[in-house]
Design a protein around this nucleic acid. Sequence first.
DNA 1: CGACCATAT
DNA 2: GGATATGGTCG
Length: 662
Amino acid sequence: MTPNSPLKLVWKGKDKPSNPEDDFDDLNPVITYRHMLSNNLGVRDPLRVIALCDSDAFYAACEMNRLRVDKDVPLVVLQWDMLIAVNYPARKYGISRMDKKKDALKRCPHLKVVHVATYKEGEKEPGYWDDVDTNTHKVSLDYYRRESMKIAAMFKEEVPGCEIEKASIDEAFFDFTKPVREIMLHRYPHLSKTPPGAPLGADTPLPPPPNISWNGLGNLIPVNPPPPASEDEPPDGQPNITTTSLPPEDEEVELASNKSRGDDTPTTWHDVALSIAAELMGKARLAVKTKLGYTTSAGIARNKFLAKLTASYKKPDSQSILRNTAIPNYLRPKEFQKLRFLGGKLGSALAKEFDVSTVGDLLTISLESDGMQSKFGENSVWVYEILRGIDRSEVKDKGSALTKSMLASKNLPKPITKASEGKHWIRVLAAELALRLKDAREMSPNLWPKTIVLHARKGYDAGRSKQAPFPFTREVTVDTIASAGDKLWKELVGNSMTLNVSSVQLAFTGIDVAEAGQKSIEGFLKPVSSSSVKETREPRDIFDIDQVAQPGSATNAVGDGSPQNLGNDKSQVVSLSYVCARCGKTFELPTVHHTGAGDYQDIHDQLTRAKLEHDDFHFARDLANEGSHRPLSSISSKPTPKSSKKRKASPATRGIEKFFRK
DNA sequence: CGACCATAT
DNA sequence: GGATATGGTCG
């Protein structure tokens, strides 16, 4: 029976609280030595501290850095005729996204206007040109992706031992719980051991926390927000008034008024944890600002949901802290449709069903109110909790495969009608994917896309998609990708001459590091050189294991699937290497001549032996390291309001494995 | 696994 | 709204 048992909350709706504060009655849990000294309470940890940090006007900031523009220069980033980013100096002129370039310039004639990088026609690389035309170019966000990765890398450096989840190109969540606990134990050594005379042993509450100074740590969200600034409230509380208090202009003012806002409510140990997290977050943000030139805004609170909400309290270049005690008053006036995951259909369904708009409104609706269970089913508990500031979703390190999919897409203002145009755009998109995959492989070689997907929208219809396994080829070339794309195109739009395609998207999905035993051996066999291999439009990987093991099998769905490529090359000079996906060690084999599958088999066997030996080394080393990082799958959390059904473990990995395990 | 949907920046 | 990303549903 943990103090924060979720069941308590689930059933709580049964007896309607008479005191509205009861809705938030888990916000001040008793914290014991057991809590303090446990390291695996996960999302139930009463000392959990999470932050969300996002870059201010990120694309604009990237361009300012790239062009070495002074930080006070108003600048916008353009995508065709649309503003996709407006820096803060430009916002002072009342410029916002949704404005057109024209209007923006009207408001601020000396505005710096930068168009996002584009590929043009068949260019291999994106670039910045001034003659951008949506009919011939496609946008590339690559520069921003790279900058984003730099920032993420610096964050990891700056807060070691902290789980970090990149949530989007310009946002990351931090789980500071672990490093904060260590610091707390170090700073307050009397917490590190249950005192001998403690009445309840480890379940004894901690002694009173020290008074802490929030000075310099960020903006404290007030426990008692000041009343809305304007006296003349529009009838009905309409959307264009800001219900939340306006943040003060500077932190001095904020701090001076803390007392009057009730921020002198008793300090808790969770507050101590928050304050330490704020130190760490501030340090990491400072590093990013001084070393990379990006300002950020962060929110620090007890979970992801609140951290995200808190980050928006004051921007830019600022961080804010939401104490548990400040949660109810911060949450209640918010329009729930602005909350994470309630911005879409679920949110509007709730608004319609109960005819309300704020969190406070929804708090009066119990779990078993008419319509709650029937209309929202599984979501109702999730909603119930989120409204009360409870969110058990975890911050998960997305590990090595930092990106699971790559999408290149192009909207066609003037829909295309000819097959040749389709081919053209597929080629452009393929070129981009090829480059991006190549770049990604510089960081982690052995990245493999499992599938390729083509999306197309015809006229006004909803888009349709087709996918197929992406073939094995060591060299993923534009041609490889384009022909796979062409094939999907045929299945999707056919040869009909009436086609009217207004958007095309080509994607890799299931990108992952090929791990031993997970993918087939092809992934580890890398042709170093080859001669008399004709460069066909669809170069087949000459080491495709299927060809070796089962000559003629056509499981490889590459390109046009023309059979003449299957084992038709009579003589080749090749040499092979095997690169371990885990440590990068390379095994080279001498150059061989071969005339048939038998030779392949020889090479294959030798490499297989080397690989097995090497795998054993990793296996042993893994055993030695066991125990330090086991995935905790026991904690169930619901990252999205969607179903909580668990996916079954993927079926046994098939393929080449049978060649190795005997 | 394949197609599609929901959500977000 | 365009360009991307992720995760869930359902057959």
